[in-house]
Amino acid sequence: MEFPEGLKYTKEHEWVLVEDRIATIGITEYAQQELGDVVYVELPEVGEKIVKDDPFGAVESVKAVSDIYAPVSGTVIEVNDTLPDSPETINDDAYGDGWMIKVEMSDADDLKDLMSAEEYAEYVDQQKEEEDEGEEESGEE
């Protein structure tokens, strides 16, 4: 599984690409695999303010809904408006065409507690181990 260098990562499996004060945000390869086929995406509108660690949108697979949490605080300046019509782009290209929003950050310090690619890879390994222990309880019939 690929976790590009140069991106920052959250424990909720979002990635952030920072260019000056602009943060591009999406969900990671691990997140899209865990979700499975993405069939619906709910995103904020341009001009909306998002707050670090609060949900700013949702991504839905056939089976379930997951909130997407803001890695940083700021104002939404651009939204990937191809996603509503082709949400599967998130499965196909999580770090590229599957980006979700661009945000003008209000506090660069928000980046400090995000993970590097290496740290995130380690974190994902831990998550997988926990999952393999079969402690997760979901799925119904």
Binding site: G36, D37, G134, E136, G139, E140, E141
Partner: peptide, 19 residues
């Protein structure tokens, strides 16, 4: 795999939509 009613169950193999 998920646990369901004491059973280890596969939620998906290739993907829900494909299946």
């Amino acid at each position: 795999m998920v646990e369901f009613a004491g059973w280890e169950m596969p939620v998906q193999y290739q993907g829900v939509i494909e299946e």
